[in-house]
């Protein structure tokens, strides 16, 4: 999922202080799971903002709404009738949702309420870690299901490097060396011979190096 983290309330207040009718717009997908932008976080932020502005003597209306997704037109249409009533929308969705909402409602300022961090997994309650950088050409079949692009600090494809020590990475002693994990997993799978195969130079044009990307699927297009 896309992992996001809450923005400090002070930062959000600074962005919206000049508006008087504001919609806090949550998203029921990834940001709900990582407890940054779901219905509950919308309620907490809206409640805090209402109290802040009331305490400041400002008459500000703060409404709450949470959509199934903000990265799909059909769900964004649900606020078509009300969007124009607001001076600004604070979107607690990931950067995709914020931008899609802004594109859909061109004349209403859309302000991000979270910091979008990475594609990751919930390792434990309150702990999310990166697993994928969406490089566009998956090599997990060759690396024991562990991604050196997202989990190796150098993104090297034939590791480990000299900075690997006792299974940890030189940039942080808490951080597992991805290549140590890969070798351990290949060993467990009885596929250590695969490790001997040198990975060819990766085509990074499918990564960000090739500019903004798109997936076109004519087979499912209408």
């Amino acid at each position: 999922m896309i992992v996001a983290d809450k923005k400090p309330i002070e930062e959000i207040i600074e962005e919206i202080k000049d508006y008087t009718t504001i919609l806090i717009l949550g998203c029921n997908e990834c940001v709900t799971v990582c407890e940054a932008g779901g219905k509950k976080e919308v309620g907490i932020l809206a409640s805090a903002l209402r109290m802040y502005f009331l305490n400041q003597g400002k008459d500000v209306t703060i409404d709450e709404r949470t959509l199934e997704r903000q990265c799909d037109h059909e769900y964004l249409e649900e606020i078509r009738d009300v969007a124009d009533q607001y001076d600004a929308i604070v979107s607690l969705a990931c950067g995709v949702g914020v931008q899609f909402t802004a594109e859909e409602y061109h004349t209403v300022p859309v302000i991000p309420g979270v910091n979008t961090c990475f594609l990751g997994a919930t390792e434990a309650r309150g702990l999310w870690t990166e697993r994928c950088q969406a490089c566009g050409e998956c090599i997990l079949a060759r690396t024991g299901g562990i991604c050196p692009v997202s989990r190796c600090a150098k993104r090297i494809l034939n590791g480990p490097c000299g900075g690997s020590s006792n299974g940890k990475c030189e940039i942080n002693k808490e951080l597992d060396c991805a290549w140590q994990l890969i070798i351990d997993r290949l060993d467990a799978l009885g596929k250590l011979d695969d490790y001997e195969t040198i990975s060819p130079i990766k085509d990074w044009s499918t990564d960000r190096a090739g500019g903004p990307r798109k997936v076109v699927r004519e087979d499912v297009q209408l």
Partner: peptide, 8 residues
Amino acid sequence: KILDTIGI
């Protein structure tokens, strides 16, 4: 923390 931030 939230109540401190918003001045309550």
